[in-house]
């Protein structure tokens, strides 16, 4: 298993929540994008480092940041927070239900991450995140 394999597997999970009747407008594999709409989710390898759990288990942990972005100019900050909360709850449930990422990992553990806001050309954007730790058996 590799960063690339896990990255693609997580993106596939996010893609399943995009489109009509789903909670996301779009999903991307990097945080800096020109989105087609809101809310959208991004996933990137995290800056947080993890080591082998134990040398005997020969198992490593890869960590990813999943970030949900929602513009605030149209919906306002309070509604933006509610939208991001709902999406994060849904994504966390999806990742707990399929904790192997359909076989890409031994086990994945989503945990609540950072929240904040940032300015875009189109106005202020609220974001919330999940920190996803993926344990992988190394050969």
């Amino acid at each position: 298993m590799s960063w690339s394999t896990l990255h693609n597997a997580i993106k596939t999970k996010l893609d399943a929540r995009t489109g009509s009747g789903q909670v996301l407008a779009a999903a991307y594999k990097s945080h800096s994008v020109k989105p087609s709409g809101y809310p959208y989710a991004t996933v990137e390898p995290s800056s947080r480092e993890e080591d082998y759990l134990t040398l005997n288990d020969n198992r490593a942990t890869y960590v990813f940041d999943i970030v949900v972005h929602q513009e605030m100019e149209q919906v306002g900050e309070e509604r933006a927070i509610e939208i991001v909360e709902a999406v994060l709850d849904q994504l966390e449930k999806d990742l707990r239900d399929d904790y192997t990422l359909s076989g890409a990992a031994h086990v994945c553990r989503p945990a609540p991450g950072e929240w904040g806001e940032y300015p875009e050309e189109s106005g202020w954007v609220k974001y919330g995140s999940l920190k996803l730790s993926c344990e992988v058996d190394k050969q």
Partner: peptide, 11 residues
């Protein structure tokens, strides 16, 4: 233009 529909918006 960003157009809101329910909890989602798109250009």
């Amino acid at each position: 233009r960003l157009t809101q529909s329910g909890d989602k918006s798109s250009y």
